[in-house]
Structure formats: C-alpha cells, structure tokens
Computed example of a mutant assay.
Amino acid sequence: MNQLLLKGFEVELFTGSPNGQNVGVAVEVTRDLHDFVKEPDHRNIEYITSPIKDYALLSEALLAPRRRLREWLSLKNLTILPGSTLSLGDSERFERSDPVNPYHDLIEATYGTRVVTASIHINLGIEDLSVLFAALRLVRCEAALFLALSASSPFLNGLSTGMHSQRWVQFPLTPLNVPLFANHGHYVSWVEEQLETGNMTNERHFWTSVRPNGPKRPYQLNRLELRICDLITDTNVLLAVTALLELRVLSIVRSPNLNDPFLASQLDKYELAELSNKNDVAAAEASLNSTLHHWRDGSSIVCREWLDQILEEVTPLAVEMGLSDQLKPLYSVITHGNQAMQWLEAYSTGQSVEAVLQKSIVAMQAEETFTGRGGVMLG
C-alpha cells in the first residue's frame, strides 16, 4: 500500500428556501435526478460519489452533483442549505419521504427527528482486512478530531443549542456499546449477535463514528467509512480532512506498532472504547476548544494541540505522498475556527440565525461556480 487509496463520499444535504427555511422535495428530486437518493425524511437528500484516488478529480466529483441539484431547485425558487441540523426547521415533525417503507416506519417510531441530520461520510478503500481493522481502531480513537474540524450544527429550531455539533449530540448511536474490533472474525460474530438480540434490525442499522463497509456486510468488506463528520460545504476543507484521514491510515500501514491502539496504548480495549466515546461527546460540545484524552495514555489534551501534533507527525509522509498542499486548509480551520465556531461568533454579535445561514447559502453557491482547486470559472 505505497499508493493513494480509493476515496468516495456519501453527502447528505438539506433543501430549503433562500431564507434558510427547510423545504422537503426529496421525492421529486429522486424522480428527476437519478444520482440522488432519499432519506427517511424528505427534507434530506443524498448523493454518492464514485471511488477515486486522485485528489485533483475529487473536487469536481463532489461539486457536479450539487450543481445539478441547485439547477433543479432554482426552478422552484429553492436552494441547498448548509449545516447539519434543522437550523430553522421544525424538529417536532417527521416528514416522511416514503410512507410505505417498513424500515422508515421503524426509524420514525424509534428515533423521530433525531435522525434528520446532514453529514459527510468518507470512505477509504482498504482490501487487506488486517489493515482495515487496525485502521478502524486508530480512527475510532481519533474520530473526535475529525468531528472537531467539521462541526457545523450549532443551531436547531432557530436557536443556538450550546453545542458545536448538535447533530452528533442528538443522533442515536446504535448499538450503544460498540467495541474496538480485534479482527474480522470478531466483527462478524458481534454483528451476528446484535442482529440476533435485536440491537440491530439489519446490517445497515449500525450507526457509530466509524465502521467497516463493503458489498456484503459483515462478511465481505473493502472499505473504512468515517461517519462522524458534520456536513463540510467547502470542498477544499473536506478534501483536507480526507487527506488527514488517509495519512493516518497510511501511518498504520507504515508503523503499526506505533499507531495501532491495541499495540501502542497503555489502556486496555474497554478503556479505549470508553475514552473514544467521551472524546466524541466533548468534541460535539466544544469542537476545537474541547479538552480530549489521548488514546496512547489517557492524558488530557486540548483538541487544537492534538491536531497540531498529528499534522506535524504526518508531514514527512504527506511530503512523500504529495499531499502537503492538500492539508493546508486545515491550518486555517484550526486557527480561525470551523463553520460552527464562525457561525456562533457571528450570532454572538447579534446576527440572527437566519442572517448567518443566508450568508453561508450565498458562499456555498459561489463555490459551485468554480471547478476543482484551480478555481477555473465555469462558462
């Protein structure tokens, strides 16, 4: 594994009016645009990118579907909404996209609008199962860092919630207790047990910060799926987060004894799982300002400082893999704050949630007039 990995994205979006109000049109969108799929609530829509290794091609792969969706929405005087929660929407009411889907029945009855969120799932192709499960352990223990970089959901129902990622706080993690998997066999037996006991309804009903994925879960696996990130609308930042994730996985390949928590931590597997869960909650509350606990020894560390350490650690590998420039947007995020922090700063000066959202709607649309990182204006 001396080359870049395949990378694919599952992108969930909210649709709504230019003033930031949520408006559900998923049924109509999926009827007319075949590369989009419905979520249980029709205020959400999702698209999935094909696996690509080259970062130079990923920006356009992410932006092209957004342009198609925006063109469709503009005919109805609607737009794409930034953020990962119903910032101005009604979280008391579930708006079904498919009233006859029995799985959606279960979701609505069990979770309600807690699941009505938007996020980015980042998938990295890993065929070697021993590498895959070592990578899953490392990423599980560092998932809070990726949430901190991506946090974009401080609002709900027109109010500040006090959280940087309200999405992660409200989303129902399922099952509640997920171990760090020792290997593929451990994962298979655990999933089979969850299905037998009813903790999971099907193999997809596994909602956690990071999970293995593949063509026939849990038996055939070929990728790591990071699920913790809030929606990142700036593709340069999203690709920087992806590059950091990829470099952490490649670090496992190069130096497993230094980077696999089962080999390099002073904590046992139960302590590591508990530490990771607590870190995720802390990052949801204060993101880059949060105090986390390092998986190597459990010591406390400010999230920004941990990210600075990791970026310094991966720098030689980034140079070797040609990813140094790709990481640059992260330094700006660490210095100036993620989207949630910038929104909350504007909100603290007296700007309304509506005004904050409207500025970001305009910025999100402006990005789509450019292709790739080169900033070439579309004709």
Rank of each mutant, 00 (worst) to 15 (best):
L6E: 13
V29Y: 11
V29G: 01
D35M: 12
D41L: 07
T49Y: 06
I52K: 13
K53Q: 14
R66N: 10
L69Y: 08
R70I: 13
K76S: 10
P82N: 05
G83H: 03
L86T: 00
S87N: 08
S87I: 07
S87A: 09
S87H: 10
S87P: 07
S91H: 12
S97H: 06
S97M: 13
P102V: 04
L106F: 09
E108R: 08
G112M: 01
N123F: 10
I126W: 08
E127H: 15
L129G: 02
A134V: 03
V139Q: 00
R140G: 04
A143Y: 15
A144W: 13
L149Q: 09
S150E: 10
S152Y: 03
S152R: 03
P154N: 08
F155K: 06
N157V: 10
G162H: 03
S165C: 11
W168Y: 13
P172N: 10
L173G: 12
P175E: 04
N177K: 14
L180N: 03
L180Q: 03
F181K: 12
G185Y: 13
Y187E: 01
W190R: 14
E193Q: 06
E193G: 04
E196C: 07
T197Q: 07
M200W: 06
N202Q: 02
F206R: 12
F206I: 14
S209W: 15
V210T: 00
P212G: 02
R217G: 00
L224C: 08
E225R: 07
D230E: 05
I232W: 07
I232R: 03
A240Q: 02
T242E: 01
L245K: 04
L245S: 04
L250K: 15
N259E: 03
D260H: 06
L263H: 08
L263Y: 04
A264C: 02
S265C: 06
V281D: 02
A283F: 09
E285Y: 10
W295E: 00
W295R: 06
W295P: 01
D297W: 09
G298Y: 05
S299R: 12
L307W: 11
E313F: 13
G322S: 05
K328P: 01
S332C: 11
S332F: 15
V333W: 07
T335M: 08
T349A: 01
V353M: 03
I361R: 03
I361V: 04
V362K: 12
M364G: 14
M364L: 12
Q365T: 15
A366W: 11
A366C: 04
E367C: 10
R373T: 14
L378A: 09
